[in-house]
Nucleic acid binder design. Structure first.
Ligand SMILES: Nc1nc2c(ncn2[C@H]2C[C@H](O)[C@@H](COP(=O)(O)OP(=O)(O)OP(=O)(O)O)O2)c(=O)[nH]1
Ligand SMILES: [Mg+2]
Ligand SMILES: [Mg+2]
Ligand SMILES: [Zn+2]
Length: 580
DNA sequence: GCCGTTTTCGGCCCGACTGTTTTCAGTCG
């Protein structure tokens, strides 16, 4: 396995889950087993690469990773293996690990199938089922055998996760359909979707109703449903034709608040909240809060539930099982930035480079969005194929074009910027001379992503310290579900941003969401400001601003942290815009 | 194995659903 895969968060999580499985079937302490599962969850839900945090000696900031597990990680990153894990894995048949991916098979089942029938793959399982070997095992029967066969035969074509954008589109339609059912009092999409996680596994829907059976029937009859996975009296799951899984949970209107909280999660937040309540004698479930007397208190809204617990209302974006509960206890949660606060957008491309609309069309769209200002940031003509005089001439023509309709002739201020490349050797693609004629300039990396960390970092630092560069675009270079971020020493990058008083972009394009939420939080805690840009290549893309706002909210940002939530005079000063 | 502002020991979230069960174990969200 290549290093980047071997050290990826998902592979690390798998490693700890497998050790948890070993402990579970070899009768280790239940809570040690759970600790390994928790470590796996913590690793999977970290937006930062655990490898990077190890590099920066910040692993102890991840809740769920303690001294023992950190030392195993240390050994793994240094040597590529953990000898203690290799040792304990010898106690179980290796084949069992291949079975854990199959839905319905957990550690116990995998252990028995691998141990008693020497099943070590999906194919083995299929033939064992067909031969009727499973049904004869103690504790299994005809039904469980055919369930396992079905499960093993179900192909796994779907990617594990989809973009938040994709999931929201699907969920919006499904919700509209659900609301057509007269038994549906309220319907919401929850889980990672409501927490605005950058990528989403399944879609979780909740419904408040007095007739769950009617609602579940309606749910399963949605025209996009390809397969009903399972259904009970209170919940159901379906797979849509586009392979998206959707879970439904129903509940009474009177206790809908705790149902919302339960299904919004995250799992780690739920556990933390329930543990917090338990310490005070209360037991939380989706049905309400059980008092020490045994009496169940019900909550129509989440707000009332948090209030009952002595906590400030915690916005879904913050419910990740980090410090949100202790901060809410002190009533110190930030007043998160809202899409309505946004007053401008400073990265977009037009027909003068790779965009499809004119400057005027982008400006009109901005007026529709109620913005005060925008920045046009086309890639300039290339210095490799044009003289400086030609480049400057073109820029001046753009200025003249903008002057036809710019403020105060209309309500929108149009700034002229550019997005220049940070070249592989650290130089910028444009000279200071050319950069200086723009109102502002963004520098971004678009090539040589695979350089070692110090080299990439050096390139970024060089750009940050250039007086004509106002901020760095999509700083990590990640493309969700496709390309990992390049290696950056974030501590150093942030300290340069502080030293040179530069904000950082939160690129709102749904495939980027870059800077990522957890790094946003770290930078915010250092006092760094952000600018949320859509990086639009058409007027339609300008609607993606909300995804950047989601990311900022997940990074605990309030309006004060976001420069383009400020009026023009404030951002002009904070960004040191030129030509004013 | 992790965790902590009354605790560094002694706790650790809670319930639905399923299949095989004479009362529960396993898996999942
Ligand atoms: N209390 C409790 N709640 C859970 C547990 N597992 C899941 N939940 C709740 C919180 C989750 O956010 C919610 C939905 O579960 P999902 O597996 O769909 O997770 P989520 O949507 O957060 O992430 P995803 O993007 O779907 O992988 O159900 C659990 O073990 N205990
Ligand atoms: Mg989900
Ligand atoms: Mg789910
Ligand atoms: Zn770019």
């Amino acid at each position: 396995m290549e290093d980047f895969k071997k050290f990826s968060n998902s592979n690390l999580a798998r490693m700890f889950n497998e050790i948890a499985a070993v402990y579970e079937v070899t009768g280790q302490s239940f809570f040690r087993t759970r600790a390994y599962q928790n470590a796996a969850i913590a690793i999977n839900s970290s937006s930062s690469q655990i490898r990077d945090l190890w590099d920066e000696e910040k692993l102890d900031t991840v809740a769920g990773l303690g001294t023992a597990i950190i030392s195993y990680l240390d050994e793994y990153f240094k040597t590529g293996k953990v000898s203690h894990f290799d040792f304990v894995r010898k106690n179980v048949p290796t084949g069992m690990f291949n079975l854990l991916d199959i839905p319905g098979i957990g550690p116990k089942t995998a252990f028995r199938l691998a141990g008693e029938l020497e099943i070590s793959s999906r194919e083995d399982l299929i033939s064992a089922c067909k031969l009727g070997k499973i049904a004869s095992l103690k504790g299994f029967g005809e039904k469980s055998q055919s369930d396992l066969l079905n499960s093993a035969l179900t192909p796994r074509i779907k990617k594990d996760r989809v973009l938040l954008f994709t999931a929201l589109t699907i969920a919006d339609d499904f919700k509209k359909y659900m609301q057509k059912c007269s038994s549906v009092i309220a319907c919401d999409f929850l889980g990672s979707l409501r927490r605005r996680v950058a990528t989403v596994g399944d879609i979780d829907l909740s419904v408040a109703t007095g007739s769950p059976e009617v609602v579940i029937d309606h749910f399963c009859k949605y025209k996009e449903v390809a397969k009903v996975e399972n259904g009970g009296n209170k919940k159901a799951s379906v797979i849509l034709k586009n392979d998206q899984r959707v879970d439904l949970m129903t509940g009474d209107q009177a206790s809908y608040g705790t149902l919302l909280a339960h299904l919004t999660g995250s799992k780690l937040h739920n556990i933390a909240l329930r543990t917090y309540a338990l310490e005070r004698g209360f037991s939380i479930s989706e049905y309400g809060i059980k008092k020490p007397s045994g009496e169940q208190e019900k909550f129509k809204t989440e707000k009332e539930m948090y209030e009952f617990l002595g906590l400030e209302y915690i916005p879904p974006e913050l419910r990740e099982g980090g410090e949100e509960i202790s901060v809410a206890l002190n009533h110190k949660l930030p007043d998160l930035v809202d899409s309505l606060d946004i007053k401008g957008d400073l990265q977009m491309h037009t027909i003068y480079s790779d965009g499809v609309n004119t400057i005027k069309e982008m400006a009109d769209k901005a007026i529709n969005l109620g913005y005060e200002y925008i920045g046009i940031t086309d890639h300039s003509l290339s210095p490799n194929t044009h003289t400086e005089k030609e480049i400057v001439g073109a820029v001046n023509r753009y200025y003249q074009e903008i002057a036809q309709f710019n403020y105060p002739k209309s309500n929108i201020r149009v700034l002229l910027g550019t997005e220049c490349n940070i070249l592989s050797d650290g130089r910028l693609s444009l000279s200071d001379n050319i950069l200086s004629i723009f109102d502002f300039a963004i520098a971004s990396i678009h090539t040589a992503f695979n350089q070692p960390k110090d080299q990439i970092t050096e390139r970024l630092l060089n750009a940050v310290s250039n007086p004509y560069i106002n901020f760095i675009g999509h700083p990590s270079g990640r493309v969700l579900l496709e390309r990992l971020a390049y290696d950056v020493d974030w501590g150093q990058f942030f300290s340069y941003c502080i030293k040179y008083k530069k904000p950082i972009e939160i690129n709102a394009f749904p495939t980027r969401l870059d800077l990522a939420d957890d790094l946003v939080k770290k930078a915010k805690d250092l006092g760094i400001k952000f600018i949320i840009n859509t990086d639009s290549h058409s007027t339609a893309h300008m609607d993606y601003m909300k995804y950047g706002v989601f990311t900022a909210r997940r990074g605990w940002c309030s309006k004060e942290d976001i420069l383009n939530a400020q009026s023009f005079s404030v951002i002009a000063k904070a960004l040191s815009l030129r030509n004013l």
